[in-house]
Write a protein that binds this DNA or RNA. Structure first.
Lengths: 205, 205
DNA sequence: AGATTCTGACTTACCAGTAGGTCAGCGTCA
DNA sequence: TGACGCTGACCTACTGGTAAGTCAGAATCT
């Protein structure tokens, strides 16, 4: 059974490869844009094997978001503990999305946000959790930067955090449509420039 | 056959009702989130009747974007010829999206941008055209505002236009996920505030 | 050690339901 | 009479999902 997926955080062997394939498919084509058959073909296993590891598509989707949110959270924690100044942290934050775009992928949860109305309840909850976590992290960074003077912005830092999240997701959405990573770079740059008191360009990877 | 859709701009009777139903479905659930059967059920006609008016789902999708782009273009023209100052025009622009959000709908093309990788070529082209038109319109307004001093921003006005488009789409995406129109209002407000030299709050409809 | 049992990780073969799409023909109205 | 707008009946491909069986290897018993 799906014991590992249920009380587990680590997915061994096949389960993890299934998640990898599914993640790539969702980021490319959306949750309604692929089928169990697609994953099965990718991994050269049968559809039934998928059902062995993840009871249904909804379960797979939920596991997918949770794993994504966890690894994204770890990346955020790494940036936060990196010790750089707040504007640097914001630039690194944008860099996380930039890396995805290089592979023509959307943010997993940005993609799922578009399909939100068609998602099963547990997936909806998980998507919201992801955005909440992003907002929390950004709010802390913004507050920190405002305190030490490296950031200058007016109004609620929570609102500013929300604007950054939606700005990033929107910039990804459009940039990917045009197949033009630079669109994202420029948009993210000027979005953050409106907040920093001195320029902190995105690191070009 | 699809004569009307092909060399036509106006859709009479049933064809127009089909487009209405399809448009609502795409904005709610995405292009991959509904089927011909859904539209047929909504309108109490048969699937075959749909195929009479629009040869295939791809044709329907293309007609959908074209009609949407045209009516959106007309709304933009109306704002432009309204004669208000540039910041007012920008606020009205945001108001167009705001109205959609009130019905839990995404911008049609924002939705399709997410599904871009799964769309047939003609639909892709039409989506790009929509965004290009938005950018053109915004660029003109920004340039005008910069000239008469009602707007203050640094850098290319084309880049600023792009940032506004992606900011709007992203703000819609996230706000709709949370089912919270105010999120959009706040994000759009502070996005535009970063450009205007004096505050021009969104008109609350 | 050897036989037994059990389990994890699958496969094969199937299901009902739905997807988009076709086509002959029917009624209505100019 | 003929075009227009549509229906009913169908088709094939594919959807997520299931039931039953296989099979290597670990665990247990003798």
């Amino acid at each position: 059974m799906t014991t590992v997926a249920q009380h587990g955080q680590r997915y061994p062997g096949t389960a993890s490869r299934i998640l990898d394939a599914a993640e790539a498919l969702v980021q490319l084509r959306g949750f309604n844009g692929f089928s169990y058959a697609d994953i099965a073909a990718d991994l050269h296993i049968t559809k039934a094997a998928l059902h062995y590891h993840f009871a249904g598509k909804a379960d797979l989707g939920e596991a997918l978001i949770n794993r994504y949110a966890r690894s994204f959270g770890e990346a955020l924690a790494a940036i936060a503990s990196g010790g750089g100044p707040a504007p640097r942290k914001l630039a690194d934050y944008a860099g996380l999305y930039l890396r995805l775009l290089g592979q023509h992928k959307m943010c997993l949860c940005g993609m799922l946000a578009a399909e939100y109305q068609t998602l099963p309840q547990p997936m909806r909850v998980a998507v919201i959790r992801f955005f909440d976590a992003n907002e929390n992290w950004l709010e802390a960074v913004l507050e920190e930067g405002r305190q030490d003077g490296s950031l200058e912005f007016t109004g609620d830092s929570r609102d500013a955090a929300r604007m950054i999240v939606s700005g990033m997701e929107g910039a990804m959405l459009i940039a990917r449509t045009y197949g033009d990573v630079d669109r994202f770079r420029v948009a993210a740059d000027s979005l953050l420039a409106g907040i920093a008191s001195a320029p902190w360009p995105l690191s070009t990877p």
